[in-house]
Structure formats: C-alpha cells, structure tokens
Computed example of a mutant assay.
Amino acid sequence: MNFLIPLAHAQAGGGGAEGGSAIYSIGMIVVFFAIMFFLVIRPQMKRQKEHKKLIENLAKGNEIITAGGVAGRIREVGENFLVVEVAKDVEIRVQKSSVTSVVPKGTMDSL
C-alpha cells in the first residue's frame, strides 16, 4: 500500500503546467466567442436594424413584397398592420413585420 503514496504526490506536483493550460483554454474560449460575435451575431444585428428602418419608412403608395411572396401597393398604414392592394379592388391586411422589401414604383404595373 505504501507504493501508492509516491504516485499521488507525483500527480499533484504538476500544478505549474496545468495553470498555463488553463489560461490557454480561457484564451481559446474568448477567441471562439469573438469569432462567433463577428461572424454570426453582429451581421444579424445589422440586418435587424435595417429591417426596422425599412418598416419605419413604409408609406402609402409604396410597392412591397412580403415574406410570403405577396406583392402589392400599400393603401393604408396602421400601427401594426398595412392594407395592401394586390390587384384592382382586392385588398389584404398584413403585418408590418412581414414586409421584406420595398420595390421600385411601377413594378406592380409590369407584373
């Protein structure tokens, strides 16, 4: 049984090398999160900011395309909803957040 004691002391003696690897591991985690921030989180925040600006600038007469692929001309702008004319005398109500893009005027006439 006494032969196990020197092994236990030998394992505990390597504390200096473990301290360096702990700093290295923490550094790698920080680098990983920095990469994730610049490749995933930051571009997503930029897209959200652009979409919010697009929704705030919607006005009557703009021609839009929704997330579902519906194209139309805005007839009324409410707080959360829009009334969109998709054909002559055919209007639908959509959420503002479903608008993905504003297209140039005259696009609806060419469709």
Rank of each mutant, 00 (worst) to 15 (best):
R93M: 08
E76A: 15
V77G: 01
G69W: 10
Q95M: 12
G69H: 13
I74M: 10
G78K: 07
V84H: 01
I65D: 00
V77A: 02
I74C: 04
I65C: 08
G78V: 09
I92W: 04
V83I: 13
I64T: 05
G68K: 15
E91Q: 10
R73V: 13
A67W: 09
G72W: 03
G72E: 03
G72F: 01
G69V: 09
D89K: 09
I92Y: 03
V70K: 07
A67G: 02
E79C: 09
E76N: 13
T66N: 06
Q95N: 14
Q95H: 14
E79V: 13
V90F: 12
E63A: 06
E76C: 05
L82T: 00
V77T: 10
R73H: 00
E79N: 14
N62M: 15
Q95R: 11
V86L: 02
V86M: 05
I65F: 00
R93K: 15
I92Q: 09
F81S: 02
V84T: 05
V83W: 03
G68H: 11
A71W: 06
R93D: 06
I92S: 08
K88E: 11
R93I: 05
K88G: 04
R75K: 15
E79F: 13
N80H: 10
I92T: 12
G68Y: 10
G72C: 05
G69Q: 08
N62Y: 13
G68L: 11
K88L: 10
G72T: 09
Q95W: 04
N80P: 00
V90E: 14
V86D: 01
A67M: 12
E63R: 02
Q95Y: 10
D89S: 13
V83S: 08
I65V: 15
V86G: 01
E63S: 09
V86C: 00
V70C: 10
V86K: 01
R75M: 12
V86F: 03
V90C: 07
E79S: 14
G72Q: 03
I74Q: 06
G69S: 11
V86H: 02
A71N: 05
V83E: 02
K88R: 12
G69R: 11
A67N: 14
T66G: 09
E63P: 06
I74F: 05
I64M: 04
E91F: 13
L82Y: 03
K88P: 06
Q95P: 00
D89I: 10
V83Y: 06
I64N: 02
F81A: 06
D89T: 11
V70M: 13
V83G: 02
A71Q: 14
N62Q: 10
Q95V: 02
T66W: 06
R93H: 07
E79L: 14
